[in-house]
Nucleic acid binder design. Structure first.
Lengths: 226, 226
DNA sequence: CTTTCAGTATGACATATGTCATGGTTTTGG
DNA sequence: CCAAAACCATGACATATGTCATACTGAAAG
């Protein structure tokens, strides 16, 4: 996380995304807002520890994964538009460990909450926002789960590739990806090959090129969508 | 939903479950609290419409299902201990439609919110509670999803049977159940048969008897747990 | 430069699950 | 009481997915 020293831009963004309207005591918190940037692949949130910040995700793309007790990690969803991050962690629930990673460079507004946490608990505008954010996520996650259960790997993989690719180029560690999608490496490879033979992807020594972006989207079945 | 006219019991339960401590303006809401009972199999929450109540689930057992756009319905989880119901609906999100059914007779405290909704939005104690409740659910649902993805139907079915059975007797509409578990009727039958052949269940003309409750629990893998 | 290791790739086989056809049984509406 | 509908049951076959063994490759470490 790199802090961007640009007061003007910070203020512009805060207005643009209506941050003042989301806090009753906005003025009090003002000194604790910072404009920050995350590099591609940088980890934004992980486990405990990182709880000193609440993040307002502004632009870029992030990937949310759920860390399992057996050490595995499963994809939950992607976000590409305004979101509150750290809402779960705000409640200091330890049983949940999600890891949020920047898929593309991201701009966020960070609110350092260590010293204002107590005050935020009295801020009903903020609490409404927090609660609404959680409600939205719950809705989304429930829906995604159902789709996960109902559709084959093909859909999840198509959606994943569609979302993380840049310039129609897809290149990721497939071993890790199989973990993320909750499947076996073997099977992942099979489906990748299937995509290739269907002319959706084309294999290169390093990574794949998307040849039929439209078809990929069709297969994705609205999964993991933002 | 049947209202139980028993002021004394209502007050006792409200104290026991610390309802006064969950609202800043508790006294204002007092006239809107009611003690209610749901019969076994009665629908507690469904779609829109039912939003005039917030429910504090006290005793019994309930089943939460997610209604899909294609008309299907998928099991989300069970609850057997204190829970807030209607938190999602409180935010008036239409995309989410969950149905909550009483698996066993239930006692709840209903709070009629039609006239106090606005006031509740200013009640930061309540908002904290609401938000915390949503955070817990989100955590749980994420976890269950992952398990769903990682374990075979066997686990989900075992957990389901374990939870809805009474006196070691299990008797439900298997066609509906297959829908609920996101699988095919055929496959459900197969696994049921498997349980029988393993001596976990015993088939009777009407329903099944659990012979090996312990094994069933083992198979359940902590799924759908409360 | 060689060894090691992580990542890639593939075949063979097993298991989990879905689909379809078909028939039996029970419930229910008339 | 009969017919229709809903539910239960099972076989055959297809597809989705997992497991294991094995081998190749390129990059990192010594």
């Amino acid at each position: 996380m790199e802090i961007i020293q640009n007061e003007k831009r910070l203020n512009r963004l805060m207005l643009q995304y209506n941050l003042p309207g989301r806090f009753r005591y906005y003025e009090e918190y003002k000194p604790y807002f910072h404009l920050v940037r995350f590099a591609k692949h940088e980890i934004i949130y992980q486990k405990q520890g990182q709880r000193q910040y609440l993040l307002f995700f502004i632009t870029g793309k992030i990937k949310v994964c759920c860390d399992m007790s057996n050490g595995r990690s499963l994809l939950v969803c992607f976000y590409t538009s305004f979101q509150l991050l750290g809402d779960l962690e705000f409640h200091e629930i330890d049983t949940s460990t999600t890891t949020i990673t920047a898929v593309e460079p991201c701009i966020c507004i960070a609110l350092r909450i260590t010293s204002i946490r107590k005050r935020l608990l009295e801020d009903n505008l903020f609490l409404q926002f927090l609660s609404r954010s959680l409600a939205d996520k719950l809705t989304r996650v429930s829906r995604n789960n159902s789709i996960n259960l109902l559709y084959p790997l093909e859909s999840r993989l198509a959606s994943y590739i569609y979302q993380v690719s840049e310039n129609n180029y897809f290149c990721e560690n497939l071993t890790q990806l199989s973990e993320l999608l909750g499947t076996s490496y073997r099977h992942l490879l099979r489906v990748m090959k299937e995509f290739v033979s269907q002319g959706i992807l084309e294999k290169y020594p390093k990574g794949y090129v998307i040849k039929d972006s439209w078809r990929l989207m069709e297969l994705a079945e609205d999964l993991y969508l933002t």
